[in-house]
Simulated assay, not measured.
Amino acid sequence: MILIITVLFSLFYLFQINKMTFALCQSREIPEEKQPKIYRTVNILITILILSFYLEVLLNV
């Protein structure tokens, strides 16, 4: 049950972070060739954050 809730939360959270990253790229006028690197970095960091959150919850339950 916790896995399903975490996956749904993670997808929603990742989508929101990508929307904010897009807004950042637009407001700062970041060139198109640098944007994939920014998205990749943000998505990897958020994925690490989500995995560590899941492990913390899993080990404390």
Score class of each variant (00 low, 15 high):
residue 1 M to F: 11
residue 1 M to W: 09
residue 2 I to Y: 11
residue 2 I to L: 14
residue 2 I to A: 10
residue 2 I to E: 11
residue 3 L to G: 08
residue 3 L to N: 14
residue 4 I to S: 14
residue 5 I to N: 14
residue 5 I to H: 12
residue 5 I to F: 15
residue 7 V to L: 15
residue 8 L to S: 10
residue 11 L to T: 11
residue 11 L to A: 09
residue 11 L to S: 06
residue 11 L to C: 13
residue 11 L to F: 15
residue 13 Y to P: 01
residue 13 Y to M: 06
residue 13 Y to L: 13
residue 13 Y to G: 05
residue 14 L to N: 06
residue 15 F to P: 01
residue 15 F to L: 10
residue 16 Q to K: 14
residue 16 Q to H: 07
residue 16 Q to I: 12
residue 17 I to G: 04
residue 18 N to G: 00
residue 18 N to L: 11
residue 18 N to C: 12
residue 19 K to F: 08
residue 19 K to E: 06
residue 19 K to P: 02
residue 19 K to L: 14
residue 19 K to R: 14
residue 20 M to Y: 10
residue 20 M to N: 14
residue 21 T to Y: 01
residue 21 T to H: 01
residue 22 F to G: 04
residue 22 F to C: 03
residue 22 F to M: 09
residue 23 A to H: 07
residue 23 A to T: 03
residue 23 A to Q: 11
residue 24 L to Q: 04
residue 24 L to T: 11
residue 25 C to W: 01
residue 25 C to E: 10
residue 26 Q to C: 06
residue 28 R to D: 03
residue 28 R to S: 08
residue 29 E to A: 08
residue 29 E to H: 13
residue 31 P to Q: 04
residue 31 P to L: 03
residue 31 P to A: 08
residue 31 P to W: 00
residue 31 P to F: 03
residue 32 E to D: 08
residue 34 K to V: 04
residue 34 K to H: 08
residue 34 K to L: 07
residue 35 Q to C: 04
residue 35 Q to F: 03
residue 36 P to W: 11
residue 36 P to N: 06
residue 36 P to A: 06
residue 37 K to C: 02
residue 37 K to F: 01
residue 38 I to K: 02
residue 38 I to A: 06
residue 39 Y to C: 00
residue 39 Y to Q: 00
residue 40 R to I: 04
residue 40 R to G: 03
residue 41 T to G: 02
residue 41 T to F: 12
residue 41 T to R: 11
residue 42 V to P: 04
residue 42 V to M: 07
residue 42 V to G: 02
residue 42 V to W: 02
residue 43 N to G: 01
residue 43 N to W: 05
residue 44 I to H: 00
residue 44 I to G: 00
residue 44 I to Y: 09
residue 45 L to I: 08
residue 45 L to Y: 07
residue 46 I to Y: 00
residue 46 I to N: 02
residue 46 I to P: 01
residue 46 I to G: 00
residue 47 T to K: 01
residue 47 T to C: 06
residue 47 T to S: 14
residue 48 I to L: 15
residue 49 L to D: 08
residue 49 L to V: 06
residue 49 L to S: 08
residue 50 I to H: 04
residue 50 I to L: 11
residue 50 I to V: 15
residue 50 I to R: 04
residue 50 I to N: 05
residue 51 L to S: 09
residue 52 S to Q: 06
residue 52 S to L: 14
residue 52 S to H: 05
residue 53 F to L: 15
residue 53 F to H: 06
residue 54 Y to F: 15
residue 54 Y to T: 07
residue 55 L to N: 09
residue 55 L to W: 10
residue 55 L to D: 02
residue 56 E to G: 13
residue 56 E to F: 15
residue 56 E to I: 08
residue 57 V to S: 05
residue 57 V to D: 03
residue 59 L to C: 11
residue 59 L to R: 09
residue 59 L to I: 12
residue 59 L to H: 11
residue 60 N to M: 12
residue 60 N to E: 13
residue 61 V to E: 13
residue 61 V to H: 14
residue 61 V to Q: 15
residue 61 V to L: 15
